Computed example of a mutant assay.
Amino acid sequence: MRVFIIKSVNLLIVAGILALYCINVHKVGEEKKAIAEKTDKKEVVSDSGNNIYFADDGIYEGSGDGFGGEIKVRLTVKDNKLEKVEILSAENETKDYLESAKKILDDVIDKQLVDVDTVSGATLSSNGIISAMKDAIKNGKKKSNDSAF
């Protein structure tokens, strides 16, 4: 009986800690999203550390260094969510590496995260795409989105 009581108390403590953590994470994420919506800041880190919140819908472009040189990307944002990621140019990238690295684009959209896992065998090209997306988020100029939607 004593073991049962000890295990029950431990279970309640763990459940309480988990509940408090979830409540706090949710509050922090909502506060940061509200800040993004009230300011001109285009990206705010959320509860998981890498979620993307945009203050403005639109099209953002950025660049990063991949295996063969500069990679340029375009991010399309609608309803404060990343809707589409396109590679605009990667002229000096090895075609096979770039094609493998493009697999991360679906992960970025699905997870709404920029820091996704790189593709094994195409790490430098993957890092170039990730770097270009971060550049678009932080420094990219908002383009007209009239034709995008």
Rank of each mutant, 00 (worst) to 15 (best):
M1T: 12
R2W: 08
V3C: 01
F4I: 13
I5E: 14
K7S: 15
L11M: 06
L11I: 06
L12T: 13
I23D: 08
N24P: 00
K27W: 05
K27Y: 05
E30C: 00
K32A: 08
K33H: 10
A34Y: 07
A34L: 13
I35H: 12
A36T: 04
E37W: 08
K41N: 01
D47M: 06
N50G: 15
N51P: 01
N51A: 12
I52C: 03
D56G: 04
D57K: 08
S63M: 15
G64H: 04
D65A: 08
G68I: 04
G68C: 08
E70M: 13
K72D: 09
V73Y: 00
R74C: 03
L75A: 11
T76M: 12
V77G: 03
K78W: 06
N80W: 06
K81Q: 15
L82M: 14
L82F: 06
E83F: 13
E83Q: 10
E86G: 07
I87K: 00
L88A: 02
E93A: 07
T94H: 07
L98M: 12
L98V: 14
E99A: 11
K102V: 05
L113P: 01
D115E: 14
V116D: 02
V116Q: 01
T118G: 08
V119G: 08
G121W: 05
T123N: 12
S125D: 06
N127W: 00
N127V: 07
G128L: 03
G128D: 03
I130F: 01
S131Q: 14
S131F: 00
K134Y: 11
D135A: 15
D135E: 11
A136V: 07
A136N: 05
G140L: 09
G140V: 07
K142I: 15
K142T: 08
K143A: 13
K143V: 14
S144Y: 11
N145K: 12
D146P: 02
A148F: 14
A148R: 06
F149W: 05
